[in-house]
Nucleic acid binder design. Structure first.
Lengths: 213, 213
DNA sequence: CATCTATCCGTACGATCGTTCGTATATAAT
DNA sequence: ATTATATACGAACGATCGTACGGATAGATG
């Protein structure tokens, strides 16, 4: 079933190509921007013809949207999935934050977090790309807030905790670390973000949760 | 003295033109980016010829650098100077934060904070523009940390306060508010940032400073 | 007066942009 | 075997990019 693409050699070949192109395109986009990402430049970067790439994606906007989707998949694989191995509650919240910081610091993308770059580029411009970026960002914020809510129900964080507010504050620290580490070419912002997040969480800790690690 | 431009009608005319162009260019750059800012587009936006603008600034990079300088002047006038009317210490720190949030929320630039946009665009690309943006950002962070240090010496904030760390945390909240309010077209992030900053400062408040508003 | 300089305009250049088209090739479907 | 579909290529298109040049005008300088 799936999409019935079980055995179509043509589409299979195309999917391999699209994936290969995307691996380069997504990384390039974090440096030169999704708009600065040109079909011609991308073509020479992957040793293909301009027309080949144009036909593979249809239009530049579809290429950009494909890049957003591809980045979301990578984010899911590198940040979300690994963090889910930690037990629900504070440990998982911690794992999520640490996975994000590693994702940024290890330069999974040359230009740091893909969505931080894409957000800054499209937040003031209407269009399908902006909508796609915003939807992914919102999903991330909601996931983070969900992890916080879970940490409250497990009794790790205090009852009065506002998940949305705390999620805002944590992601603010993560984004700031990403921003400044790139701009100043320094690892210190990550240390500052970790310090800040620890303080934020310490403020909401239950007596029970304050004991272990 | 100054630059000896006291009475040169030619340069005076040029300065007026440059200033008029910059008023549009800086705002445009916060939306389309400093790189997306084209000489041709800027020319038609200010009803001038392409060659006129090119000659007025020399090259595109010099135009971008002029935009950074112009934005820094506006930032100084809109954020720094007004905040300096407040008495040194916690009141001035509060005024500084509030001035920044107003500067962002009132859309002094259509695309929000100029330096937030420019930072995201150039943080991964070497060059003179990146250096200029980084220098201004660093100056802002140091100024903010200086205001915090002052609030410690006045006895408003606790002795143990780390000015650099607190400045990192505060500016993270400001940037996050700017980012999200633009992306989600909402004023809520500003409220969240104010709540977050209040909590950050409350953590460092002296008993003496906790009394007055 | 003449000479130099600083705006501005109009035009043109080469490069690159996104897109379209014709063609070749391989696979699927009938 | 015939027809249809999906990659890929190469070439060409109109548009726009940054830059350069010549000329016109206004002001500064000798």
């Amino acid at each position: 079933m799936d999409v019935m693409t079980v055995t179509d050699g043509r589409r299979a070949r195309g999917d391999v190509s699209r994936q290969a192109v995307m691996a380069i395109a997504v990384d390039l986009a974090t440096v030169s921007g999704l708009d600065g990402l040109s079909i011609g430049g991308l073509a020479s970067a992957v040793s293909m013809s301009k027309g080949g790439i144009a036909g593979l994606f249809g239009s530049k906007e579809e290429l950009q949207l494909a890049a957003v989707t591809s980045a979301a998949e990578i984010f899911q694989r590198v940040v979300i999935v690994p963090a889910l191995t930690a037990p629900a509650g504070l440990p998982r919240l911690h794992a999520l934050i640490e996975a994000w910081l590693d994702y940024s610091e290890n330069r999974v993308f040359s230009g740091g977090c893909f969505f931080a770059a894409a957000t800054a580029e499209y937040r003031s411009r209407p269009g399908a790309v902006r909508d796609a970026v915003a939807a992914n960002l919102r999903r991330w914020h909601e996931f983070l807030a969900g992890a916080i809510t879970r940490a409250v129900t497990t009794g790790d964080l205090a009852e009065g905790t506002d998940p949305t507010q705390l999620a805002f504050e944590i992601s603010a620290m993560l984004d700031a670390a990403n921003d400044q580490s790139l701009l100043f070419d320094s690892a210190k912002p990550y240390a500052r973000a970790r310090t800040a997040v620890d303080a934020l969480l310490a403020r909401q800790l239950t007596a029970r949760a304050a004991r272990p690690t």
